[in-house]
Protein backbone atom coordinates (compact mmCIF):
# COMPACT_ATOMS: atom_id res chain seq x y z
CA UNK A 1 0.00 0.00 0.00
CA UNK A 2 2.78 2.42 0.84
CA UNK A 3 4.18 4.08 -2.21
CA UNK A 4 7.33 6.11 -2.44
CA UNK A 5 5.69 9.35 -3.40
CA UNK A 6 3.30 8.89 -0.52
CA UNK A 7 5.80 8.73 2.29
CA UNK A 8 5.79 11.92 4.23
CA UNK A 9 9.21 13.14 5.10
CA UNK A 10 8.42 14.62 8.49
CA UNK A 11 5.04 13.32 9.59
CA UNK A 12 3.32 15.33 12.30
CA UNK A 13 1.53 12.28 13.64
CA UNK A 14 2.31 8.66 13.10
CA UNK A 15 -0.01 5.81 13.96
CA UNK A 16 1.33 2.31 13.93
CA UNK A 17 -0.63 -0.89 14.48
CA UNK A 18 -3.45 0.84 16.33
CA UNK A 19 -6.33 -1.22 17.73
CA UNK A 20 -9.25 0.30 19.60
CA UNK A 21 -11.64 -1.74 21.69
CA UNK A 22 -14.94 -0.81 23.29
CA UNK A 23 -15.08 -3.41 26.01
CA UNK A 24 -14.82 -6.72 24.16
CA UNK A 25 -15.72 -5.23 20.83
CA UNK A 26 -12.92 -4.21 18.49
CA UNK A 27 -13.73 -1.02 16.60
CA UNK A 28 -10.32 -0.40 14.97
CA UNK A 29 -8.10 -3.19 13.75
CA UNK A 30 -4.37 -2.66 13.14
CA UNK A 31 -4.42 0.75 11.50
CA UNK A 32 -1.19 2.48 10.53
CA UNK A 33 -1.19 5.92 8.99
CA UNK A 34 0.91 9.08 8.87
CA UNK A 35 -0.45 12.60 9.03
CA UNK A 36 1.62 15.24 7.31
CA UNK A 37 1.95 18.80 8.41
CA UNK A 38 1.11 20.60 5.24
CA UNK A 39 -1.64 18.32 4.16
CA UNK A 40 -5.33 17.82 4.67
CA UNK A 41 -6.10 14.17 5.24
CA UNK A 42 -9.64 12.94 4.72
CA UNK A 43 -11.06 9.84 6.37
CA UNK A 44 -13.93 8.29 4.46
CA UNK A 45 -15.89 5.10 4.86
CA UNK A 46 -19.33 3.75 5.59
CA UNK A 47 -21.09 4.58 8.81
CA UNK A 48 -19.81 2.69 11.84
CA UNK A 49 -16.51 1.75 10.25
CA UNK A 50 -14.57 3.49 13.02
CA UNK A 51 -13.55 6.83 11.53
CA UNK A 52 -14.61 8.81 14.56
CA UNK A 53 -13.13 6.21 16.87
CA UNK A 54 -9.76 6.46 15.20
CA UNK A 55 -9.91 10.23 15.06
CA UNK A 56 -10.71 10.42 18.76
CA UNK A 57 -7.78 8.19 19.59
CA UNK A 58 -5.47 10.77 18.00
CA UNK A 59 -6.08 13.26 20.82
CA UNK A 60 -7.04 10.71 23.44
CA UNK A 61 -10.68 11.82 23.59
CA UNK A 62 -11.39 8.12 23.86
CA UNK A 63 -10.11 8.36 27.43
CA UNK A 64 -13.49 9.86 28.31
CA UNK A 65 -15.24 6.64 27.30
CA UNK A 66 -14.86 4.26 30.20
CA UNK A 67 -14.95 1.10 28.11
CA UNK A 68 -12.53 2.28 25.42
CA UNK A 69 -9.00 0.80 25.22
CA UNK A 70 -6.29 1.69 22.70
CA UNK A 71 -3.26 -0.44 21.82
CA UNK A 72 -0.50 0.18 19.32
CA UNK A 73 1.57 3.31 18.98
CA UNK A 74 0.53 6.84 18.08
CA UNK A 75 3.20 9.52 17.94
CA UNK A 76 3.07 13.26 17.86
CA UNK A 77 6.40 14.67 16.72
CA UNK A 78 7.96 11.33 17.56
CA UNK A 79 6.56 11.19 21.08
CA UNK A 80 4.23 8.38 22.08
CA UNK A 81 1.00 10.09 23.07
CA UNK A 82 -0.14 7.14 25.16
CA UNK A 83 3.10 7.10 27.16
CA UNK A 84 2.62 7.77 30.86
CA UNK A 85 4.85 10.81 30.59
CA UNK A 86 2.52 12.38 28.02
CA UNK A 87 0.23 14.96 29.50
CA UNK A 88 -3.29 14.71 28.11
CA UNK A 89 -4.08 18.31 28.79
CA UNK A 90 -1.16 19.50 26.71
CA UNK A 91 -1.75 16.87 24.08
CA UNK A 92 -5.26 18.08 23.51
CA UNK A 93 -4.08 21.66 23.33
CA UNK A 94 -1.66 20.63 20.61
CA UNK A 95 -4.16 18.40 18.81
CA UNK A 96 -7.39 20.36 18.59
CA UNK A 97 -10.77 18.97 17.63
CA UNK A 98 -13.89 20.21 15.91
CA UNK A 99 -17.06 18.20 16.34
CA UNK A 100 -19.86 17.13 14.09
CA UNK A 101 -22.45 19.36 15.70
CA UNK A 102 -21.32 22.88 16.57
CA UNK A 103 -20.95 22.97 20.36
CA UNK A 104 -20.23 26.53 21.44
CA UNK A 105 -20.27 27.03 25.19
CA UNK A 106 -23.16 29.08 26.56
CA UNK A 107 -20.82 32.02 27.00
CA UNK A 108 -20.06 35.14 25.00
CA UNK A 109 -18.31 34.82 21.65
CA UNK A 110 -15.24 36.38 23.17
CA UNK A 111 -15.21 33.97 26.10
CA UNK A 112 -15.71 31.00 23.81
CA UNK A 113 -12.59 31.82 21.88
CA UNK A 114 -10.70 33.02 24.94
CA UNK A 115 -11.51 29.93 26.95
CA UNK A 116 -8.60 27.80 25.71
CA UNK A 117 -5.88 30.46 25.92
CA UNK A 118 -7.12 31.34 29.41
CA UNK A 119 -6.97 27.87 30.84
CA UNK A 120 -3.60 27.21 29.26
CA UNK A 121 -2.22 30.55 30.36
CA UNK A 122 -1.30 31.59 26.84
CA UNK A 123 -2.26 35.21 27.35
CA UNK A 124 -0.52 36.98 30.21
CA UNK A 125 -2.92 39.91 30.09
CA UNK A 126 -6.15 41.13 28.62
CA UNK A 127 -4.50 42.91 25.70
CA UNK A 128 -2.73 39.72 24.66
CA UNK A 129 -5.98 37.80 24.93
CA UNK A 130 -7.72 40.40 22.78
CA UNK A 131 -5.06 39.88 20.12
CA UNK A 132 -5.34 36.10 20.29
CA UNK A 133 -9.14 36.19 20.08
CA UNK A 134 -9.12 38.58 17.21
CA UNK A 135 -6.51 36.60 15.28
CA UNK A 136 -8.36 33.33 15.81
CA UNK A 137 -11.63 34.84 14.66
CA UNK A 138 -9.95 36.37 11.63
CA UNK A 139 -8.41 33.02 10.71
CA UNK A 140 -11.74 31.32 11.13
CA UNK A 141 -13.26 33.90 8.81
CA UNK A 142 -15.73 35.05 11.41
CA UNK A 143 -14.25 38.31 12.53
CA UNK A 144 -16.12 40.60 10.20
CA UNK A 145 -19.43 39.06 11.11
CA UNK A 146 -19.01 39.21 14.89
CA UNK A 147 -16.54 41.94 15.69
CA UNK A 148 -19.30 44.25 16.91
CA UNK A 149 -20.99 41.71 19.09
CA UNK A 150 -18.26 39.83 20.86
CA UNK A 151 -20.21 40.00 24.11
CA UNK A 152 -23.20 38.17 22.70
CA UNK A 153 -23.73 34.53 23.47
CA UNK A 154 -22.04 32.09 21.15
CA UNK A 155 -25.23 30.06 21.01
CA UNK A 156 -27.02 32.99 19.37
CA UNK A 157 -25.09 32.57 16.13
CA UNK A 158 -26.29 30.64 13.10
CA UNK A 159 -25.23 27.03 12.71
CA UNK A 160 -22.48 27.79 10.20
CA UNK A 161 -21.21 30.68 12.29
CA UNK A 162 -21.25 28.47 15.37
CA UNK A 163 -19.12 25.89 13.60
CA UNK A 164 -16.63 28.55 12.55
CA UNK A 165 -16.67 29.80 16.12
CA UNK A 166 -15.74 26.29 17.24
CA UNK A 167 -12.92 26.27 14.73
CA UNK A 168 -11.77 29.64 16.02
CA UNK A 169 -11.95 28.26 19.54
CA UNK A 170 -9.70 25.39 18.51
CA UNK A 171 -7.28 27.65 16.64
CA UNK A 172 -6.98 30.03 19.55
CA UNK A 173 -4.84 27.64 21.59
CA UNK A 174 -2.43 27.45 18.69
CA UNK A 175 -2.65 23.73 18.00
CA UNK A 176 -0.40 21.81 15.65
CA UNK A 177 -3.05 19.41 14.43
CA UNK A 178 -6.77 19.99 13.95
CA UNK A 179 -9.11 17.02 13.88
CA UNK A 180 -12.51 17.60 12.33
CA UNK A 181 -15.26 15.02 12.65
CA UNK A 182 -17.83 15.66 9.92
CA UNK A 183 -17.68 19.40 10.57
CA UNK A 184 -20.21 20.22 7.86
CA UNK A 185 -22.82 17.53 8.33
CA UNK A 186 -25.11 19.83 10.31
CA UNK A 187 -24.73 22.77 7.92
CA UNK A 188 -26.38 23.98 4.75
CA UNK A 189 -24.44 24.16 1.43
CA UNK A 190 -23.49 27.81 1.80
CA UNK A 191 -22.13 27.37 5.30
CA UNK A 192 -20.40 24.21 4.11
CA UNK A 193 -18.71 26.11 1.31
CA UNK A 194 -17.45 28.65 3.82
CA UNK A 195 -15.96 25.96 6.02
CA UNK A 196 -14.30 24.31 3.04
CA UNK A 197 -12.81 27.62 2.05
CA UNK A 198 -11.57 27.97 5.59
CA UNK A 199 -9.93 24.57 5.47
CA UNK A 200 -8.10 25.63 2.33
CA UNK A 201 -6.82 28.67 4.11
CA UNK A 202 -5.76 26.80 7.19
CA UNK A 203 -3.85 24.23 5.23
CA UNK A 204 -0.17 24.66 5.65
CA UNK A 205 -0.54 26.24 9.04
CA UNK A 206 -1.93 23.14 10.70
CA UNK A 207 -2.00 19.48 9.98
CA UNK A 208 -5.68 18.84 9.33
CA UNK A 209 -7.60 15.59 9.47
CA UNK A 210 -11.21 15.65 8.37
CA UNK A 211 -13.82 12.92 8.54
CA UNK A 212 -16.50 13.25 5.92
CA UNK A 213 -19.31 11.33 4.31
CA UNK A 214 -19.33 13.63 1.35
CA UNK A 215 -17.12 12.31 -1.45
CA UNK A 216 -17.04 15.62 -3.29
CA UNK A 217 -15.99 17.34 -0.14
CA UNK A 218 -13.16 14.90 0.42
CA UNK A 219 -12.07 15.38 -3.15
CA UNK A 220 -12.26 19.17 -2.87
CA UNK A 221 -10.48 19.77 0.42
CA UNK A 222 -7.97 16.98 0.92
CA UNK A 223 -4.67 15.91 -0.54
CA UNK A 224 -4.61 12.51 1.13
CA UNK A 225 -7.56 10.18 1.64
CA UNK A 226 -7.89 7.14 3.83
CA UNK A 227 -10.72 4.71 3.26
CA UNK A 228 -11.87 2.75 6.30
CA UNK A 229 -14.09 -0.28 6.25
CA UNK A 230 -15.21 -2.39 9.20
CA UNK A 231 -12.47 -1.02 11.41
CA UNK A 232 -9.61 -1.58 9.02
CA UNK A 233 -7.77 0.88 6.81
CA UNK A 234 -8.47 -0.44 3.34
CA UNK A 235 -6.66 2.08 1.27
CA UNK A 236 -4.62 5.22 1.80
CA UNK A 237 -3.28 7.42 -0.92
CA UNK A 238 -3.32 10.71 -2.74
CA UNK A 239 -6.86 11.95 -2.96
CA UNK A 240 -6.67 12.19 -6.74
CA UNK A 241 -5.54 8.58 -6.97
CA UNK A 242 -8.19 7.28 -4.62
CA UNK A 243 -10.98 8.99 -6.49
CA UNK A 244 -9.80 8.38 -10.02
CA UNK A 245 -7.95 5.16 -9.72
CA UNK A 246 -8.60 3.19 -6.57
CA UNK A 247 -6.54 0.07 -6.11
CA UNK A 248 -8.99 -1.84 -3.99
CA UNK A 249 -12.30 -3.18 -5.20
CA UNK A 250 -13.99 -2.14 -1.95
CA UNK A 251 -12.81 1.44 -2.31
CA UNK A 252 -14.08 1.59 -5.80
CA UNK A 253 -17.46 0.20 -4.82
CA UNK A 254 -17.73 2.71 -2.03
CA UNK A 255 -16.83 5.84 -3.94
CA UNK A 256 -19.00 4.90 -6.84
CA UNK A 257 -21.85 4.57 -4.40
CA UNK A 258 -22.43 0.86 -4.60
CA UNK A 259 -22.69 0.63 -0.85
CA UNK A 260 -22.20 2.62 2.27
Amino acid sequence: MTQDDLTIADPKMKAHGVNVFYGEKQAINDVSIDVGTDLVTAFIGPSGCGKSTFLRSLNRMNDTVASARVTGRIELDGEDIYAPSMDVVQLRARVGMVFQKPNPFPKSIYDNVGYGPRIHGLAPNKADLDVIVERALIRAGLWDEVKDRLAESGTALSGGQQQRLCIARAIAVDPEVILMDEPCSALDPIATAKIEELIHELRGKYAIVIVTHNMQQAARVSQRTAFFHLGTLVEYGKTTDIFTNPKQERTKDYITGRYG
Binding site: T37, H120, D174, G204
Partner: peptide, 11 residues
Amino acid sequence: MNRQTAPTDWK
Protein backbone atom coordinates in the same frame (compact mmCIF):
# COMPACT_ATOMS: atom_id res chain seq x y z
CA MET B 1 6.55 26.44 9.09
CA ASN B 2 4.19 29.07 8.15
CA ARG B 3 3.09 30.34 11.55
CA GLN B 4 2.59 33.92 12.51
CA THR B 5 3.69 33.45 16.09
CA ALA B 6 6.28 31.29 17.69
CA PRO B 7 4.78 27.94 18.62
CA THR B 8 3.83 27.63 22.25
CA ASP B 9 6.66 26.27 24.31
CA TRP B 10 4.82 23.44 26.03
CA LYS B 11 7.97 21.97 27.50
